[in-house]
Design a protein around this nucleic acid. Sequence first.
RNA 1: CGGGACGUGGCGCAGCUUGGUAGCGCACCCCGUUUGGGACGGGGGGGGCGCAGGUUCAAAUCCUGUCGUCCCGACCA
Length: 551
Amino acid sequence: MALRLVDRAGLDALGDLGGRQTAVTCQHGCRHDDSLCDARCSVSPPKDRNRGFSLLLPAEATGLAPRRIRLRPGRVRPVESLIMANVLTPQGEDFPRWYQDVVAKAQLAENGPARGSQVIRPTGFALWERMTAEMDARIKDTGTENASFPLLIPESYFRREADHVEGFAPEVWMVTQGGGKDLEEKLAIRPTSETIIGEYMAKWVNSYRDLPLLLNQWCNVMRYEMRTRLFLRSSEFLWQEGHTVHESYEDAHAFTLRILHDVYADFMENVLALPVLRGIKTEAERFAGALNTFACDALMRDGKALQMGTSHELGQKFAKAFDIQFQGKDGKQAHGWTTSWGTSTRMIGGLIMGHGDDAGLRVPPNLAPVQVSVMIVKDSDEVRAAARKLYDELKADGLRVKLDDRGDIAFGRRAVDAELKGYPVRIELGPRDLKNGEATVVSRVEGSKQSVPLGMIAEAVAAALAGAQQQLWDEALGFREAHTVDVASVDEAVEAARTGYARMPWDACGVEGEARAGQSAVTVRLLQREDGSVPDSLDESGLIAYLARQY
RNA sequence: CGGGACGUGGCGCAGCUUGGUAGCGCACCCCGUUUGGGACGGGGGGGGCGCAGGUUCAAAUCCUGUCGUCCCGACCA
């Protein structure tokens, strides 16, 4: 009796799997260099119900994860079907490919039919909904109110602020027809809404008593893009844009920084568990039409930086362009001081690349749409009922829980799916657990499994969630620290930017150094004071520059 | 927009050199056995090869154009 592994052409193929020389090791440790595995290797056949032989396909045979395969005497199977492919391309092998794999396999989003457009699937949108909920609460805490402004902006509005038009011209989509006729005035599809909101601010602000005027809108915007990537850069994306008018420079400036710290950084660090650098943008990176741009920047696991949010102080430039004036206490007319600030669905990309690993997404519990997945291991009425009970209890505790009681899908497949989607904690419940009055609590981040008495699940879950949040933060912070290098020259900065941030005195870099680094696709992400705090303006001396490659 | 690669069932690919009416793995559907980490056996369904022209008796296969995707660069949340 012999076992044969054959390819679909009917030839023995294990000797040439994927072009590699292959040796197969059977369960008894015997090594086989050809396609034959004789019966002696099955002296003690596995308890396998199919009475087959179990062989270990070593990693070097396939270039993929080692896999145990079962063969039955005389059975012929295509070699392809014996190889268990990785679920995702490993990060270390090809990071961009890994990113695409995660987005696709975790069912987050896919491309729309028009270039650069994207469809956000329910799993991805749930992440966004959680982001909007957390962000919206923080935005409202600053006294800002939500409103909604038109998608279409008359071209003339757009032209009123010179720097703004010039900066956005290459990115604007313009509507030229309506009702089958050419429009008298073209309409820009908003790439951002300073202009149209400015127009209304001018109407609504008359007195210093109307100030500050604090507005925000959650909407979509469109920007023409050459190269697009799901979540990171798409022609259309979802975001939040805040627009405010203040009485003085000081008020506007303070508010710009308040948003940066209390809304953006607070959300990113405490909810997303992503440590962010906060600082001021150089002139080259500044928002078109702004006096100063402040930003939060995070390091992804491939060593590239991602701008996660920006807050601009616009001075009086837009106020003058749109005639936003008010009468002060002194009875005199004065122009207001405006700000604008935004964060987008790009943060989803940051979440994926900031925390994800080779098994998929890792979502911090504070954000996670699904914090706990209660899954049955084996299908039975008792297990099902116990799982339902557990689900109800956890839900009553205020946790975001999902019940996975699909009995028709193998456990392993469901476990892989839970890992792909990054559920922080899952509770496995099977007959064995039930017999012991326990459930198995598994942490996605810590990689731990522990049996917990059914009465103590809530505590165990709470601890696991807190631990996961903390560990994600610690890992991300540790990664950033390990990938930040102090350098003295632009050349060194370019070299260091291969793996992360390069930090150097801004005086030693300067505008020329910035341009030179740009030749190597390295940019100055932002500038900080020596103590890490955010400068009030670019005029301050002794600033520190962070350089990196960027998304 | 410049350089490179590529578009074949949901996903990953083979077939194009030497044109003859499409195939494999996974996924999917049904039945049965299963279910503690990606099940097994048997039986099925689905594409006309990105799109548009052209050459030909005949085009995934050859020619032209176009759209889209990925990587690098320029630009950006």
